[in-house]
Nucleic acid binder design. Structure first.
Length: 746
DNA sequence: GTGCCTGCTCACGGG
DNA sequence: GAGCAGGCAC
């Protein structure tokens, strides 16, 4: 038996096709990560490729972490030299080494959206433009789209031609870039564009990385934008060993510049490309897949694929109509409660998905009322919260005083009696002399027109200097505590907060921040303040998903991509909400298609049970709306649906008659089959496990993870999936045939 | 320089 | 419905 026997025929073909361009069209739940990882193993074990020459790029840190873990488990020794990173962190690593060639310093900071807004606002003000005509948000989205397409300020100016407003935006763009450079900062889009620019202008660097990354794999390829495509194709242009994995039906990031033609035109770009489709789904019951297929079939520009599963039909898709959003939330919560009490589900098996973050509030209230544990993912990013950003600004100022925004953010927080008038004088002084804001503060004695305030400024500069010297010896977590206390930030929180709850909330956020610093210190070989700040800049909320805690997950449909849950609830299935009003009224059919793909993503998250809900009336932005049932629900054939109407407006309760699909389900998971049996954990008592020399409860050793205890052995095809609780690395799942676990004799 | 009030704007998604 | 910027009073 080899490790590849666990793959199906198509997966094998993909894994064994190692040379030249390869497009893997992988439907939802078709085992694409498995395929990629086995492909890496094949490259190393059978083709003798040095792991150092293999690169895998993902979009999210979570996907990268998952891949890293599974690669380590499968390949073991040597796997650590495979480059597994997100696009953004890949670029950061490259730029930290070589960005000086583009005139930045290698210790640049990364600006988030708020920082970008401040810069743009400042630029608009200084250019004496009407802020009502040029809104930061709009300007920024134009700049961001330009960067996604690798269009610089000069090119934008040429394209604008005679259009006055566009020319002005190009000017703002140019000035914005100069400001960033002056602050030694880059934004998220710059990370990609600057790396492309670096490669284009420095052949030696490009060749170095081309030679290093001889085998490149890109996950979620349908989400790449033009700049990311360029980056990948530059890297791959020497060896052309480019394997991209994606699903055009799951492209949901057009708003972020994702260019679906990257995947649709892959074969045109690389005429010698091999295309392999993975259509067998290992996640969901057939009824769920039929619903997903039915919906997505309404899209035109797509590559034809049809998911199928051998798991049996399972239950019908439940569709419930409620009178309003509150009752919808109540209904979902009640349903989850019932499932957990009577059907053997755990809270963590359930996910509630919605189109907009604003919808989470009503749900949260009901979960709290029902005393059911839950966690909301996404929404306001942890690191965007005011108190966290304030402390981060202190840390950035301590780390290097070049980030003007950070300095300006905290110079008067807590209040030090340094006001806007004083600051603008310092600002003018700094600009005239091309100084950093902080350096100008340091020379406050020379700044004209500053009277009493100069002593206050000097005190602030001295305070930072003290923190800097402390930072040299203190751990980061200690430094954070020191900043909070010695700056008086803790006192300020208590005085300014509206009520006790707010104080508790903010304090607990700061506590969590400290513990994140501790986690960083413990998980990093050489923790540095700069390293910590960089890590913080690149995390998203969903990256911190903790599957071990038993609670219901609430998140947007976008955040749910890549995840799976036994029971999924998609709420707010109403025209005007999902698909959103903007996409219905835009008149562009592509927009509706993107919404439909989002719906497809949502449906295919469900393993065993899918629930769709909607409300007849709903409060949106303080205004009651009456929406039709979502067109996506209507696209699901009625015989796949079990419709339930709730509330006093409900008509007679209607259940669609059993169909041929129902009859097929006999022997599979019929509706009457209890759900308790879905985790098919088998202990060592199973005779099929006789080939393994260890069993549940035994102590085993792994080449990379050291020793641990076997928790469970699950049968999966011709192999066994073994869960082991390692002393140093926690619980890991791995396949027995390639984990090469050895029983410890004690 | 600070604090409060009002009125405006944004309500789609995220690294 | 909520958060924020800007204006105004102190």
């Amino acid at each position: 038996m080899t490790i590849y026997d666990t793959l199906n025929e198509m997966q094998k073909e993909a894994a064994f096709h190692t040379e030249g361009p390869l497009l893997i069209l992988a439907g939802a739940g078709s085992g694409k990560t498995r395929t990629i990882i086995h492909r890496m193993a094949y490259l190393i074990d059978e083709k003798g490729v040095n792991p150092y020459n293999i690169m895998a790029i993902t979009f999210t840190n979570k996907a990268a972490a998952e891949m890293r873990e599974r690669v380590d488990a499968l390949i073991g020794y040597g796997s650590e030299s495979i480059w597994v990173c997100t696009f953004h962190s890949t670029c950061v690593r490259i730029l930290r080494r070589f960005i000086d060639r583009l005139g930045y310093k290698t210790n640049f900071t990364i600006y988030d959206t708020d920082d970008q807004k401040s810069v743009v606002k400042d630029v608009i003000k200084r250019m004496n433009l009407d802020p009502k005509m040029y809104k930061e948000r709009t300007v920024l989205s134009v700049i961001s789209s330009a960067k996604d397409e690798l269009i610089g300020p000069d090119e934008m100016m040429i394209r604008a031609a005679g259009n006055y407003a566009e020319r002005k935006i190009a000017e703002i763009y140019k000035e914005y870039q100069e400001q960033l450079k002056k602050n030694n900062a880059v934004d998220f889009d710059d990370l990609i564009c600057l790396t492309v620019e670096l490669f284009r202008e420095n052949k030696d660097i490009l060749e170095y990385y081309q030679d290093r990354f001889r085998y490149i794999m890109v996950d979620e390829y349908q989400d790449t934008n033009t700049a990311q495509f360029k980056l990948v194709s530059l890297l791959a242009s020497r060896y052309e060993n480019l394997c991209v994995v994606g699903d055009d039906d799951q492209s949901i990031y057009k708003f972020r510049g994702a260019n679906i033609s990257n995947i649709l035109d892959f074969e045109d770009t690389y005429p010698n490309a091999r295309v392999i489709k993975l259509e067998q789904n290992y996640r969901s019951m057939q009824n769920i897949l039929n619903a997903a297929n039915a919906v997505i079939q309404h899209n035109l520009g797509r590559k034809n694929k049809k998911l199928w599963s051998d798991k049996g039909d399972g239950e019908k898709v439940k569709f419930s109509i409620y009178d309003n959003g509150i009752e919808e939330a109540e209904g979902v919560v009640e349903d989850i409660k019932k499932k957990v009490l009577t059907e053997g589900y755990s809270y963590k098996d359930c996910a509630v998905l919605y189109r907009t973050n604003a919808q989470s509030r009503a749900l949260e209230e009901r979960f709290v009322a029902a005393n059911i544990p839950y966690r909301v993912y996404g929404g306001v990013n942890f690191y965007q919260r005011k108190e966290i950003k304030d402390i981060l600004a202190y840390l950035k100022t301590i780390d290097n005083g070049q980030d003007d925004l950070a300095v300006k953010r905290i110079i008067n927080v807590p209040k030090r009696g340094i006001g806007a008038t004083t600051l603008s004088k310092v600002d003018t002084y700094a600009m005239e002399r091309e100084l950093n804001f902080f350096d100008a503060l340091d020379m406050v004695e020379d700044v004209p027109g500053i009277g009493k305030a100069s002593a206050k400024i000097q005190a602030f500069v001295d305070f930072i200097a003290v923190l800097r010297s402390k930072a040299e010896t203190m751990r980061i977590s200690e430094l954070i505590r020191e900043v909070i206390e010695s700056s008086g930030y803790d006192k300020m929180l208590e005085e300014d907060a509206a009520d006790e709850d707010e104080i508790a909330e903010r304090i607990s956020n700061l506590e969590e921040f400290v513990s994140k610093a501790v986690t960083y210190e413990e998980g990093t070989d050489e923790p540095t303040l700069s390293g910590f700040l960089e890590e913080v800049a690149l995390v998203a909320d969903i990256d911190n998903m903790d599957e071990t805690v038993n609670r219901v997950s609430l998140m947007t449909l976008h955040s749910a991509k890549g995840l799976e849950f036994p029971a999924v609830y998609i709420t707010g299935m109403e025209d005007g909400l999902f698909p959103s009003y903007m996409t219905i009224s835009s008149g562009n059919p592509d927009d509706i298609e993107e919404e439909r793909r989002l719906c497809y993503v949502g449906i295919t998250r469900a393993m065993k049970e899918l629930n769709l809900t909607c409300a007849r009336q709903r409060m949106i932005r303080g205004e009651t709306q009456y929406n039709q049932v979502s067109r996506f629900v209507k696209e699901i054939p009625p015989l796949l649906l079990e419709k339930r109407e709730q509330g006093f407006m409900a008509g007679s309760r209607s259940t669609v008659k059993p169909s041929f699909l129902d009859r097929q389900s006999e022997g599979g998971f019929g509706r009457r089959t209890p759900v308790t049996s879905y985790s098919s954990v088998k202990s060592i008592g199973n005779p099929k496990n006789a080939t393994l020399e260890y069993g549940v409860g035994d102590r085993v050793r792994h080449i990379k993870f050291g020793t641990g205890t076997v928790l469970a052995i699950v049968e999966g095809g011709r192999d066994y999936e073994v869960s082991v609780d390692f002393e140093k690395f926690g619980v890991k799942k791995m396949f027995a045939s390639f984990a090469k676990l050895v029983k410890c004799e004690e």
